[in-house]
Design a protein around this nucleic acid. Structure first.
Lengths: 197, 197
DNA sequence: CGTTCAGTTGACTAAGGTCAATTCCCGTGG
DNA sequence: CCACGGGAATTGACCTTAGTCAACTGAACG
């Protein structure tokens, strides 16, 4: 395990909670280095493997499959944690798939290690709370966007400064999927908002 | 404060975490009894009042206002906690309104009391984690439903056993709003699925 | 150069939105 | 007991926007 990679993870965690060196040591021996080739899965639908991943670089998408159609709910970039959170929390098989869109480097650790950290340390328990709160805020925003905004408005939101990463780094047909529309419709929306005849 | 009401709250909390009597006492002195008349707000858009409520009886809706249109994201019934969670976590003014659909009885306590409990007790910190995890699971499900399912499929989901409460206790035009469609469209969907000409 | 795949465009369909009229339900007051 | 009023739900006519299917374009890569 590259020390720089570990430092990236520790730094990301410290944005949520201050860990003592002692707290950090509880986790560090369980970390493993992983690589995914483009197109490989971090977790596939129906599986129960409950590893948490931390993205060092690369990007991934998180999607559900329904009636043979894939519906993308999230994209992940470097410095983010990934997991089938629903599956880890409930112990049920994953209903979603996390797929590498590019080659990825990750750090992994088992969800059950995180649970044991919750038991052993108030600081880690706090990390768990902050992580779940962070997720809930993100989900609330995504949910409200789907309910309140039209597909066109959702597309315009992606153009705003803080969201540019998706527009810049994700192919358009996957952006359409994320917006809940077909690539054909996104193409028309783009023409509409560009003002061109 | 009615002892039965307090027992309801303690029981609801104990579904997430086991509290000692000592932990419970940290909260109990901060509890206040509240009533809302039908149509009154627990929290209104733009406000920052950060009280957590626990519904003893009655029901409420949780909605955003966008371009003068109200969009309902949730309904709450007895034995649930209500708050503008986003506002409490971020300290920003609430973007949503929680309105009593019927007369309601509630128990209230300030969000900042909960934060102090997090600091003082690992058990309360765990409660905070479990609460956020519970919320995240609910939000994930609602978000995925909006992305994956058609309005008609979403309506059919509400007819399933565990969701019946909404169909039985909420007027149809608000159900339509919750589904993201107009009352007119819901009426047509109902006719379609009933098979009647 | 072909092959391939993403993106665009056109023609047509399907489903929800809008507006307006009508019916249904229910409570209240004569 | 009945008539009336008001809000909820339904229905009809028409509009708007996304979906579908298919053809075409363009850039990337061998």
């Amino acid at each position: 395990m590259d020390a720089n990679h570990k430092a990236l993870l520790r730094n990301a965690i410290s944005r949520l909670v201050q860990l003592t060196d002692q707290d950090w040591e509880l986790l560090v021996s369980h970390l493993t280095y992983r690589q995914l080739k483009r197109g490989e899965y971090w977790i596939a639908e129906g599986k129960k493997e409950q590893q948490i991943g931390f993205v060092i670089n690369g990007n991934l998408r998180h999607y559900y499959t329904h009636d043979g159609e894939e519906k993308t709910t999230y994209f992940y970039f470097e410095n983010h944690l990934i997991s089938s959170y629903f599956s880890a929390l409930t112990g049920q098989p994953s209903k979603l798939t996390i797929e590498a869109l590019t080659d990825c480097q990750l750090i992994a650790f088992p969800y059950k290690v995180l649970v044991s950290l919750y038991d052993n340390s108030h600081s880690w328990e706090r990390f768990g709370r902050k992580l779940a709160e962070y997720l809930a805020l993100g989900l609330e925003e995504r949910m409200a966007g789907l309910l309140i905004l039209t597909p066109e408005e959702r597309y315009l939101h992606l153009l705003q400064e803080n969201k540019k990463k998706i527009i810049e780094r994700i192919p358009q047909h996957l952006i359409a999927n994320y917006l809940g529309i077909t690539p054909v419709s996104l193409s028309r929306i783009r023409r509409r908002v560009s003002g061109k005849k």
